[in-house]
């Protein structure tokens, strides 16, 4: 069985992902490696620990700020924003 494609938006742009994927995986699969910049140095950040420990991968999901992209599963119509 092949998982269903789902459409999410990232910073307003539509993006195709696969059901069951994490937001982080959906972004990384599209070649997006960074979606947040640090407070002090403005440095780009994306996935690091991959398991919810480092909080480097924070995104806004449907208006909920500071969610871990490596943990949140995509679903149809989800709006993801970098920070």
């Amino acid at each position: 069985m092949n998982p269903q494609p789902v459409t999410i938006t990232f910073d307003g742009r539509p993006l195709t992902a696969t059901a069951g994927q994490s937001v982080g995986a959906a972004l990384a699969s599209q070649g997006i490696t960074a979606w947040r910049s640090t407070r002090k140095g403005g440095k780009p950040r994306g996935l690091f620990c991959g398991i919810g420990v480092c909080f480097d991968c924070l995104v806004t999901v449907d208006g909920e700020t500071n969610q871990r992209a490596c943990l949140v599963e995509v679903c149809e119509g989800m709006e993801v924003e970098g920070s």
């Binding site: 994490s22 996935l47 490596c70």
Partner: peptide
Amino acid sequence: PGVMAAGGIQAFIKAN
């Protein structure tokens, strides 16, 4: 970006 924990890469593959 692009630097990850080794286990994080494995977790990525296993889950996704």
